[in-house]
């Protein structure tokens, strides 16, 4: 077992999480659990991105003093060692997107509960099943 194995299984973990999230959205009865499903889908996508930025045996993409001083012009040595920074930046964006969607959905859940006094999907969405 080595770092490449970790990468493959981490991708598979992300795929499984995506499926668990989809399952929760489609089949769960409780509104809050559906919201959790949306959150899990977001987390799964984040994990895919993070893992695709992972470099087995690499370093965190922050340049140290030594590498900085040894470079002439461009930072070849650092770029060969560092993990890929672009997917990490995309994940940071997606985490905040996920949190925002989650907040709005939770607010809507509270509002729907106040109206129907229930969190059950069948009770709330009864009449517009057509």
């Amino acid at each position: 077992m080595n770092g490449a194995d970790v990468q493959v299984w981490s991708f598979v973990t992300a795929g499984l999480m995506f499926i668990v999230g989809l399952y929760a959205i489609v089949f769960m009865e409780n509104l809050i659990k559906k919201v959790i499903g949306v959150m899990l889908i977001g987390d799964a996508v984040n994990l895919v991105l993070i893992t695709s930025g992972f470099k087995p045996g690499g370093i965190v993409p922050i340049i140290g003093e030594e590498l900085y001083n040894n470079a002439s012009g461009l930072f070849q040595g650092f770029a060969d060692q560092a993990a890929y920074s672009l997917p990490f930046a995309l994940v940071l964006t997606n985490i905040v997107i996920g949190a925002s969607t989650l907040a709005v959905l939770l607010g809507l859940t509270i509002k729907l509960y106040q109206r129907y006094n229930s969190l059950s999907v069948t009770t709330i969405f009864k009449e517009d099943e057509s």
């Binding site: 340049i63 770029a79 997917p87």
Partner: peptide, 8 residues
């Protein structure tokens, strides 16, 4: 990403 790391 490589180019970003190269010039960043």
């Amino acid at each position: 990403s490589y180019i970003y790391n190269l010039k960043g």
